[in-house]
Design a protein around this nucleic acid. Structure first.
Length: 478
DNA sequence: ATAGGGTTAG
């Protein structure tokens, strides 16, 4: 109640951000990590071992993990480093380092090398079920369903038991890669062997919900209850989400009430779904009510619910309320994150409030670690307001932080440059993008092609096209 | 890495 009046009577000054974002950005990686990363980034592969040998760094498992996570999108490099490190005296890789390298190799589809590592782990006696879950998930994401199933089936040959964890692992891998049908098939075939638990059912319900197939999701939920497995707070949360996404908010509320009466307390997770859904439907009063109900029940708001509430206000153009929520977060000690920033920026940019967006970006980007989307939005905004120089400055800022731009970040800037007929700059970026292994969207490439043809630069076009043909057809990363 | 939520872009 109090909260509602508070949000309605707002401070005049929308820029209270200094107060909200007083925390320092993240800690830095330890120094030896930097040394190694620099060597890896600047040394030709053939000379890498020697350069690493001469670095004088005393390796620890922690440092190795840091380095591997830095290069997780550069699978070959990560693997080279892994092999080099393994030869160092009185050093051995952690299980997590093995897993990280397995993931890196799977990303670039170097499956034989990946299995080599599995065998290494077997002889180390460090293999576990998680190793196989990782591999199953990677195969499923690469649309290699048979290989995922093979991985599941081959576990026992590696001395691991095919237990419920593994069973849920394969179900999850299949559902997450949009193969619910297959997951359901496996489930039906093997459920007697594994005694499914609430997780098994939750995985399937979520899978059907994302299909989307609400009737099937409902059916599995019912089956779960029928066979005597109690839905827990996660299962309820999934059902609420599935129903809300299907536009059945009324029914979702019914679930919330039923969980209350069965002694299962809703969490901030569930409220974030509700607040978000009301926001999407422009039902700001209901969104605020849901948020207040949560507070009344003593459930602590986390950054996600706050973001949903901010998004709801932004959607109906009530920015002052949004700033007030930021204030509230600050007083409760909940730190905003990159999405908080993105919700604000997206709203401001969408309403043409460019100046304000710039101010918010200036203040927030120091605190909330912008993500690729933050940069994409800001660069796009500058392109569309005819400030390409500013767009380029943000690009440089991003690069100076060694931030890796996404395909979309490249796209908006290339499009902006094309718009300005700055073909040469656009081409340089296009080349950089392709070189990084990122496949440009068809329209982006098409636009540049048109310009190049108009200017008679068929040579450049041919060059870019050839480079692109070297790219694998499917994306290498996920 | 056996289960769930919030933004945008394309």
């Amino acid at each position: 109640m109090l909260y509602k009046t508070k949000i309605q009577t707002l401070s005049r000054n929308p820029f209270l951000l200094k107060r909200h974002f007083s925390t320092k950005p993240k800690r830095e990686a330890p120094d030896p990590t930097q040394t190694i990363c620099k060597i890896m980034a600047s040394t030709p592969v053939a000379a890498l071992d020697t350069a690493l040998d001469q670095s004088g760094v005393r390796l620890t498992p922690e440092i190795a993990e840091h380095v591997l996570s830095r290069f997780q999108n550069a699978g070959m490099l990560a693997h080279r480093f892994f092999l080099w490190a393994a030869t160092q005296r009185s050093f051995s890789h952690s299980v997590r380092a093995h897993h990280a390298t397995i993931e890196s190799l799977a990303k670039i589809r170097q499956y034989p090398l990946m299995w080599d590592l599995v065998n290494t782990m077997k002889s180390n006696n460090s293999l576990n079920v998680e190793t196989f879950c990782i591999i199953m998930r990677k195969y499923a994401r690469a649309r290699k369903i048979d290989e995922a199933l093979y991985t599941f089936n081959v576990m026992e040959k590696y001395g691991l038991s095919q237990n419920l964890v593994a069973f849920n692992g394969i179900l999850s891998a299949l559902c997450k890669s949009r193969n619910v049908r297959k997951a359901q098939e496996i489930f039906d075939k093997m459920k007697d062997r594994f005694e499914p638990d609430s997780k098994s059912y939750s995985i399937l319900i979520d899978g059907w919900g994302k299909e989307p197939n609400l009737p099937r999701a409902r059916e599995i939920f019912r089956e779960m209850v029928d066979v005597g497995i109690k839905p827990d707070v996660v299962t309820y949360g999934i059902m609420v989400d599935v129903l809300c996404k299907a536009g059945r908010v009324d029914e979702a509320i019914g679930i919330v009430r039923s969980m209350e009466s069965s002694g299962c307390e809703p969490t901030s997770f569930i409220y974030s779904v509700l607040v978000h859904t009301y926001g999407v439907e422009n039902r700001i009063e209901d969104a605020v009510d849901a948020f207040m109900e949560m507070e009344r029940r003593g459930v602590e708001a986390d950054v996600v619910v706050y973001n949903a509430l901010i998004g709801a206000f932004v959607k109906v153009d009530r920015f002052k309320n949004a700033y007030r929520v930021l204030n509230d977060m600050d007083s409760k000690g909940v730190r905003p994150n990159s999405r908080t920033c993105n919700v604000m920026l997206n709203g401001l940019i969408g309403r043409g409030r460019t100046e304000e967006a710039i101010k918010v970006f200036r203040k927030m980007h120091k605190v909330c670690e912008p993500d690729a989307d933050t940069y994409t939005m800001v660069i796009k905004m500058f392109c569309e307001t005819d400030q390409i120089d500013m767009a380029l400055r943000v690009w440089k800022l991003m690069k100076s932080k060694r931030f890796v731009p996404s395909m979309h970040t490249f796209s908006v800037l290339i499009n902006g440059l094309c718009e300005k007929k700055d073909v040469s700059r656009a081409c340089v970026l296009m080349e950089e993008m392709i070189e990084k292994g990122i496949r440009p969207a068809g329209v982006t490439f098409g636009r540049l092609r048109q310009l190049l043809m108009k200017e008679g630069r068929d040579d450049v076009l041919k060059f870019l096209q050839q480079k692109m043909n070297l790219l694998v057809k499917e994306p290498l990363c996920d």
